[in-house]
């Protein structure tokens, strides 16, 4: 039992000598991490959303320009941790520079996101936001896939049942959805099974892309599947 050996890794692609490959890898990484980085920056440095957005934009631009991620060593840490440390360094430098030129010394204090209370630390917050971003990307991709394949009904059922899981008796929910969508219960469960399988596949495919190797992929998959805490 083992996982496929050949796999595309945007983390590795980000330091590729090929410019096209690098650019593609950056797109993948930015798509996966833009939201969590932006939220993390806003929370950690008490910035308003617009400033956090600018800093995030600046961080990714600088990382691409200066090829920051080429120094990433998968044997030392997960890419997610490495990225967060890079963000910390970048923002700290930017703020220092801003203070020196007496610009932006008074950052706007925003209301602390109450989600921080649920996370034991900023690192947990960053991780939780990353999970949220991964799931959001996967749900969007699932929706596109369903539209392309003419399975809109499957996505609508998935969105009704699995995005809004209210912990009711599953059988009762299937019957309710069957009545709502004028379908037999068996078709509801078949559509849902297909959508769920695709959702899992998409999440894991995206995860493979943004991890450097199988070991990191397995650790992050354990996290997404809730088996391990970090």
């Amino acid at each position: 039992m083992s996982f496929p050996v050949t796999r595309y890794s945007a983390v590795r692609g980000a330091s590729s000598a090929d410019r096209g490959e690098r650019s593609r890898a950056w797109d993948v990484l930015a798509a996966a991490y833009w939201q969590p980085v932006c939220k993390y920056v806003a929370l950690k440095w008490r910035l308003d959303p617009a400033d956090a957005k600018d800093l995030t934009q600046g961080f990714f631009a600088a990382a691409i320009e200066k090829d920051h991620f080429a120094s990433y060593d998968p044997s030392k840490a997960r890419f997610r941790t490495f990225l967060r440390v890079c963000v910390d360094g970048y923002v700290a430098n930017e703020r220092k520079a801003a203070t020196r030129v007496k610009r932006g010394g008074a950052s706007v204090c925003v209301e602390v996101d109450d989600r921080i209370a649920a996370s034991s630390s900023l690192e947990d917050y960053f991780r939780d936001e990353w999970v949220r971003s991964m799931f959001a990307m996967a749900v969007e991709e699932l929706q596109r896939l369903c539209d392309d394949r003419g399975k809109t009904i499957a996505y609508r059922l998935f969105a009704r049942y699995d995005l809004e899981d209210e912990g009711r008796d599953p059988e009762a929910n299937y019957r309710m959805l069957a009545a709502e969508f004028a379908l037999p219960v068996t078709q509801v469960t078949n559509h849902l099974a297909w959508a769920r399988r695709e959702f899992r596949r998409i999440v894991l495919d995206r995860l493979r892309e943004i991890t450097a190797d199988n070991e990191e992929f397995e650790k992050e998959a354990q996290l997404l599947l809730g088996i391990c805490s970090n």
Binding site: R132, F135, V139, D162, D165, R196, L224
Partner: peptide, 15 residues
Amino acid sequence: LELSDRNVAALRRVL
């Protein structure tokens, strides 16, 4: 897409 904590928990159960 902006997902709530409840959405994330529900999707994790799916996964």
